[in-house]
Simulated scan of single mutants.
Amino acid sequence: MTIVKCPTCQSKVKWSEESPFRPFCSKRCQLIDLGEWAEEEKAIPGAPDMSDSDGWSEDMGY
């Protein structure tokens, strides 16, 4: 059986049907993580958004 650490509290969690909130240990830890994403405390690194700085505009002048 695979054991993982809860991303929020680091407790051990079984990766199985017995753990409905996996990889989190509980609904509480799942909601804490969701709140961090919603508040933009967490982010996935990527290329910067260039849509406003590349000179292209959706305004076609019509």
Results as ranks from 00 to 15, higher is better:
46 G>A: 10
6 C>H: 04
4 V>Q: 00
35 G>N: 07
17 E>R: 08
22 R>W: 01
55 G>H: 15
10 Q>R: 12
2 T>A: 12
10 Q>G: 11
30 Q>D: 10
42 K>E: 12
4 V>C: 02
21 F>C: 14
37 W>V: 05
56 W>S: 15
8 T>L: 05
61 G>D: 03
20 P>F: 07
46 G>L: 04
36 E>M: 09
46 G>Q: 01
41 E>Q: 15
41 E>H: 14
19 S>P: 00
1 M>A: 01
6 C>F: 06
8 T>A: 10
51 S>D: 13
12 K>H: 04
47 A>R: 10
27 K>Y: 08
57 S>P: 14
7 P>G: 03
54 D>R: 14
15 W>Y: 01
29 C>H: 08
40 E>V: 08
22 R>P: 00
42 K>G: 07
33 D>T: 03
53 S>Q: 13
62 Y>G: 06
7 P>F: 05
48 P>M: 01
34 L>C: 03
39 E>L: 04
61 G>Y: 05
31 L>D: 09
25 C>T: 00
1 M>E: 02
8 T>M: 11
3 I>C: 01
26 S>K: 11
9 C>H: 08
45 P>K: 12
43 A>P: 11
38 A>C: 09
58 E>G: 11
21 F>D: 07
24 F>V: 01
50 M>H: 12
55 G>W: 14
2 T>K: 02
7 P>S: 06
47 A>F: 02
4 V>T: 00
52 D>V: 09
30 Q>V: 03
60 M>S: 11
10 Q>N: 10
47 A>V: 05
34 L>E: 10
48 P>D: 08
57 S>W: 13
36 E>C: 07
27 K>P: 03
41 E>T: 11
59 D>R: 08
40 E>N: 15
19 S>W: 03
59 D>S: 12
40 E>K: 13
48 P>I: 03
2 T>P: 06
37 W>L: 12
30 Q>W: 06
21 F>M: 13
16 S>H: 07
23 P>H: 00
4 V>D: 00
10 Q>E: 10
